[in-house]
Computed example of a mutant assay.
Amino acid sequence: MAYPDKVLGDDEEVVRHLHPHWLTVFWPIVGFLVLVGAASFGAALVPDGTQQGLWRLVVVGAAVVLAVWLVGVPLLRWRTTHYVITTHRLLHRTGVLSRHGRDLGLSRITDVSYRQSLWDRVINSGTVTIETAGDGGPTVFTAIPDSDGVQQLLNQLVEEDADRRAQESAAYLGEYHSLDGQHPTEQF
């Protein structure tokens, strides 16, 4: 699913769009399978009688409520958490009902590092830490798929962004000097 173009600038393109690693929803899915099994077993244990249908509905209803809370909410959190790397910035959006977001301009990023435990290396996941100029502390993103690749991509984009800004600045200065010593606002 593509990231909405409405949040992107005119000359900005999405380079990579990530969600947290899929293993963040592993235990909720295992919980769902256990819940289905337990609800089926519980419904089968309801004794025969006039109230059997009602008690089976109670068991299924409780299983549905637990499934929404233990499975649905984590899946929605995973699906609505976005890490979007563009040609100009890094966007982080999260939230199901209320939304939270943070944008880090590539020009403000001073350092990008990643950390992987042995298990993270096995599943190709990790933690990406981003230091920015002017902030009080690092921005830490956990459960990032291909964290070492994301770290390398961000470092490359930061360098490309610095080169692009330097070229734009040089082009502006070239235009400024070509006006025969007049300041651009003095033309009119």
Rank of each mutant, 00 (worst) to 15 (best):
S40Q: 14
R108W: 15
T110A: 09
N155P: 06
D103N: 13
W78K: 02
G126Y: 03
V58N: 02
A39R: 04
I85T: 15
A39F: 06
G37V: 04
V58I: 14
R89A: 10
Q51E: 13
Q51T: 15
A62F: 15
T86C: 08
Q51P: 03
G49T: 04
I144S: 00
G37L: 09
Q51A: 15
V59Y: 15
F41H: 11
R108T: 15
Q116Y: 02
W55K: 01
G49C: 10
T94C: 02
D111W: 09
G105F: 10
W55G: 01
V59N: 12
W55S: 01
L45P: 00
Q116V: 01
G134Q: 08
L57Y: 06
S107N: 12
A38E: 03
V122G: 03
P145G: 05
Y114W: 07
V46Y: 05
W119P: 03
I123R: 00
R99L: 09
E131V: 08
T81L: 08
T110I: 07
G105M: 14
V150A: 09
F41M: 08
D148E: 15
R77M: 08
S107E: 10
N155M: 14
A133L: 03
T94M: 06
L76K: 01
G149K: 06
T86P: 01
T129I: 11
V59H: 08
V128L: 01
V150R: 07
L54S: 12
T132D: 10
I144A: 00
H88V: 02
A38W: 02
G137N: 12
V96N: 04
V122C: 02
D48H: 09
T80F: 14
L97G: 12
L104T: 07
S40N: 14
T142F: 12
I109S: 00
V36Y: 10
N124S: 10
L57V: 09
V65E: 04
A143G: 00
G61S: 13
L66R: 02
H100Y: 04
L75G: 07
G61L: 12
L70W: 09
E131I: 03
G137A: 14
D111Q: 12
Y114F: 07
R108S: 15
G105Y: 13
D135M: 14
V64C: 03
D148L: 05
W119K: 03
L97D: 02
T50Y: 07
S40Y: 10
G137W: 09
G137V: 05
V112S: 00
L153Y: 03
Q116S: 07
G61Y: 10
A143L: 00
D146G: 12
T81R: 12
V58S: 03
H100A: 06
V64W: 11
V65D: 05
S147F: 13
L45I: 02
A38R: 00
